[in-house]
Design a protein around this nucleic acid. Sequence first.
DNA 1: CCTACATTTGCCAGATAATGTCAAGACAAA
DNA 2: TTTGTCTTGACATTATCTGGCAAATGTAGG
Lengths: 101, 101
Amino acid sequence: MSNIFGNRLKELRDAKQIPQRQLASFLEIDTATYCKIEKGDRRAKREQVIKLAGVLKTKPKELLMLWSADKVYDIIAEEAEAVQILNVVAENIVIYKKEKR
Amino acid sequence: MSNIFGNRLKELRDAKQIPQRQLASFLEIDTATYCKIEKGDRRAKREQVIKLAGVLKTKPKELLMLWSADKVYDIIAEEAEAVQILNVVAENIVIYKKEKR
DNA sequence: CCTACATTTGCCAGATAATGTCAAGACAAA
DNA sequence: TTTGTCTTGACATTATCTGGCAAATGTAGG
């Protein structure tokens, strides 16, 4: 699996020497749950990601990007034409943004 | 919403002048359900996509790509940095494939 | 307008998947 | 061994998804 979000989380947490227990209580969840989030066994909720960015003093954008990237990765990793899928999506986003104006 | 999969489905179906009812019974689902799939209110299952490719005489790969693209789109459309997310994922896929060898 | 057929929508039930907790196990440092 | 941290597995609870049914709407032809 990919889990770039969880990895980054651990990186930041280690750098600040904060135990999982502390972040868990901050998010008001079990340490087990937090552990799973970090390992990629569970997905954090969007608001939790933002909260974490706050405590870890990172930009929410950074974490949200990694968090979303993991979700996308899970979808396309199984597919043969993974990279092509990304291209299709990219094209459509551009189109959508054009129409939006 | 995006729904490039459903749109393509309708395109193919119209071209062949097949009523929804017929494709629905082929997939052994209600016409209402099929309708929702085409409109993007419901997601087809992977095997259904493949079956549909068969009846509509298209390459399964094409439909599967669009089908996956919709799923990816739903995830990142809400996010501000949508395009960047795609880049992050693309990078990670490359890395993963390198490690795989 | 009326009929026949196709498509769409709303609401509900069953299936499936995700999320979290608890309890127990593994690991590391002292 | 003891203490604190992290990890894992089994289970309960929720939330989400999928499909069916019934009713509504749309579309032609007569």
